[in-house]
Amino acid sequence: MKGVRHYPGFLPLTILCLIVLYAPLAVVAVYSFNASTSITQWGGFSLRWYADVFTGAEAERFGQAAWNSLTIALIAATTATAIATAAALAMIRGGPFRGRQASFALINLPLMVPEIVIAVATLIFFSTIGLTTGYLTILLAHITFCIPFAYLPIAARLEGIEGTYEQAARDLYATRAQAFRLILLPLMMPGVISGWLLAFIISLDDFIITNFVKGAGMETLPTAIFGSVKQGIKPNIMAISTLMLLVSVLFVTAAYLINRKGQKTP
């Protein structure tokens, strides 16, 4: 008898859950080091497909796509984080105000509406106002759906900071701007950084909405990969996938560690 918390079979199912989550990624990561041109035969360990990503026939196309993805993610994450930080200040430190419920619903709207519906609506909107689809339309769409992802960790962090720190600063004749810049913002920073990192990953990840609003000839990494995969999975795709996987894991681990470290200090 191991107590009421123990259920036989739950540990194997948990392990099964982890295997299901990681096995496909692990298999692709392993096969990205395959020396063979065939994706089915194992031809020994090699880094040739990683070299191919940077120098091969598709290197220029993927390089341009990666540049677009990175710059869009940087600008979108930064803009969304600034907007979300202001919103969090109003929602958490604004006291009760009219339209608070509506504002909360609005911030979370991008999480409620199915992605494909957002994609259709955004394309129709840009087409109606006559904005040619391309870099700018992708960027605008990304800023919008990144806001809730940046908002959540920032608001969570802000809720955990007592008002007394700023109160003390204000009592010592700091202006609200000074109290924000010198006291509140440094305390909020772990939340702001994780919000930015998550928004960055979400932007880098997006396929469905980007695919609708990108226009002809414009590619981000996911749309370029999708285009290649349609003709079959090639080894260089596995190398790119593994590199992107690595970037995602690094970013999320950083967000996790920064948040945890932030929780230890008051």
């Binding site: 990624l25 298999v27 990840d205 990969i225 999975i233």
Partner: peptide, 19 residues
């Protein structure tokens, strides 16, 4: 449990197709 969620959905789906 959460790490795979942050990995690109397209890449995860392609990986599953490969597997």
């Amino acid at each position: 449990i959460t790490i795979p969620y942050w990995v690109n959905l397209l890449i995860r789906t392609v990986s599953l197709r490969f597997l």
